[in-house]
Design a protein around this nucleic acid. Structure first.
Length: 269
DNA sequence: CTGAGATCCTGTCTGC
DNA sequence: TGCAGACAGGATCTCA
């Protein structure tokens, strides 16, 4: 679910509310997430102070005054929220009791993960990941190099975390619409001009989505429980059979790599 | 090696 | 109203 803008929004929300708080207890449910829990996190984190919260790809990293970092991924339906209420909700899998509130990891579909990591650089979770769109090394030339040597479809490439991290189905769809490039084009067929347009579209779409607090389709909420607003700015995603805002042709849907892709056959070439 | 498809899991919505 | 089937922000494994 949450793509880069949603994760970034959650991280910013947490940064504003739980830095300097102490983890007093960790309560782990019996339902497994994507990977087995590191149960040793319960004693290790007890009494530790939260010093910073950062994002690495779609992972949320909670730094403490111990050598370990708490790493979380929201999968498709994960929520990471702050709540003063003690009552447990369905699908609350890990609850961190803090000085004067609770940090709650809730995930209906359990595709997410909560892990303890000592060294981020050595972690298997991150070793294969591609470039972050907001890293200074991510330039249009960098994107061009990726497309040139790829035989996959451009939308698959954008969503492939081994190439670029953080872009999922929504933002791949919106970026391609904005750049007027069909999602089922072979990546290596894109011209330099098209790649420049696509690069600019990715940065613009992601930036606007972050400014809007991300997109809420169903499960995603901010750390404070509020929903995102970027879903109101979608120009292609989910707009099947509706009129294209640019040219009034019908928005169509195709499946690419098993995911719905929405596009305007008139605008996108 | 690469890329497409299936898979993990639960909830919600649509159509019969 | 009930039930089957499709579909949903991701990542990873398997197979061709």
């Amino acid at each position: 679910m949450p793509e880069l803008p949603e994760v970034e929004t959650v991280v910013r929300g947490l940064r504003n509310s739980i830095i300097n708080q102490t983890i007093e207890a960790v309560d782990i449910s019996d339902k497994q997430l994507r990977l087995p829990y590191h149960l040793e996190m319960v004693p290790i984190l007890r009494g530790k102070k939260i010093t910073d919260i950062t994002r690495y790809a779609k992972y949320i990293i909670i730094h403490t005054n111990s050598i370990y970092k708490l790493v979380m991924h929201l999968g498709m339906s994960g929520r990471l929220t702050i709540s003063g209420l003690a009552n447990k909700e369905k699908h609350d899998h890990v609850v961190f009791k803090l000085s004067n509130t609770q940090l709650i990891f809730n995930d209906a579909r359990r595709f997410g993960l909560v892990a303890l990591v000592e060294n981020l650089d050595n972690s298997k979770l991150f070793s294969h990941l591609g470039i972050d769109p907001f890293a200074s090394e991510f330039t249009w030339e960098c994107l061009y190099n990726l497309t040139k040597r790829s035989k996959s479809l451009i939308k698959s490439l954008l969503m492939n975390a081994k190439c670029i991290v953080g872009i999922g189905n929504i933002y791949a769809t919106e970026s391609l619409f904005s750049a007027k490039i069909l999602p089922n084009r072979v990546a290596s067929s894109l011209s330099e001009v098209e790649v420049v347009l696509l690069y600019q579209s990715i940065i613009e779409v992601l930036s606007k989505a972050i400014d809007s607090g991300g997109s809420t389709l169903k499960d995603y909420v901010h750390a404070d429980g509020n929903i995102g607003q970027f879903q109101n700015s979608f120009r292609a995603y989910g707009r099947i059979n509706k009129l294209c805002y640019e040219c009034n042709h019908i928005i169509q849907r195709i499946q690419i790599a098993g995911r719905s892709s929405f596009y305007c056959a008139n605008c996108q070439k």
